[in-house]
């Protein structure tokens, strides 16, 4: 697979019109296996702004109008300890917990939004390679954790 030379090319990503922000190669998250149900979409950009904290927007690089609202699980549940399969840890090149960014997908349903705790997205902070993992202890977590229980100070 050809490896793009870093910093040689900037790609412009469309946000809400008319903003256009340059996306540097070092900001692109690669998911070699995609997300479940979106296996063909392998490149994402993670966007966020202070007024939307703790939520972030995982935007498809090549389809900027589409993406997922994601959230760090620490904002949602205090003791979320998904047991990531060793194969995934190896594939992502994660040596210790500090290497990992963990994000969970939010399903926006008005006042009844939920967070999927069964399928965390684990990203290697240094390589920005990620994967939607199914924890070994997946049975301990709900698929649709109500977001109204968010312990955030808005």
């Amino acid at each position: 697979m050809p490896v793009a030379k870093p910093f040689t090319r900037m790609k412009t990503v469309e946000l809400e019109a008319p903003q256009r922000l340059p996306v540097k190669p070092e900001n692109i998250i690669t998911m070699p296996l995609g997300l479940l149900g979106f296996e063909q979409v392998k490149k994402y950009v993670l966007l966020g702004s202070p007024e939307e904290e703790p939520f972030l927007w995982l935007q498809m690089l090549d389809n900027p109008s589409q993406g997922f609202v994601v959230v760090s699980p620490t904002s949602v549940v205090p003791n979320y300890t998904p047991d990531i399969p060793q194969g995934d840890v190896d594939m992502l090149g994660i040596k210790n917990a500090a290497d990992a960014i963990v994000l969970n997908i939010v399903t926006v349903r008005g006042t009844e939004s939920t967070v999927n705790l069964k399928g965390p997205i684990v990203i290697n902070r240094h390589t920005l390679v990620g994967k939607q993992c199914i924890p070994v202890n997946v049975g301990s977590f709900p698929l649709q954790h109500p977001i109204s229980s968010l312990p955030i100070a808005a």
């Binding site: 922000l21 993670l46 966020g48 939307e52 620490t74 500090a98």
Partner: peptide, 16 residues
């Protein structure tokens, strides 16, 4: 405007 978050910035405050 929202900006791409550079990977160097820790965007996850506490890593589970």
């Amino acid at each position: 405007p929202s900006a791409p978050i550079p990977p160097a910035v820790p965007i996850v405050p506490a890593v589970p």
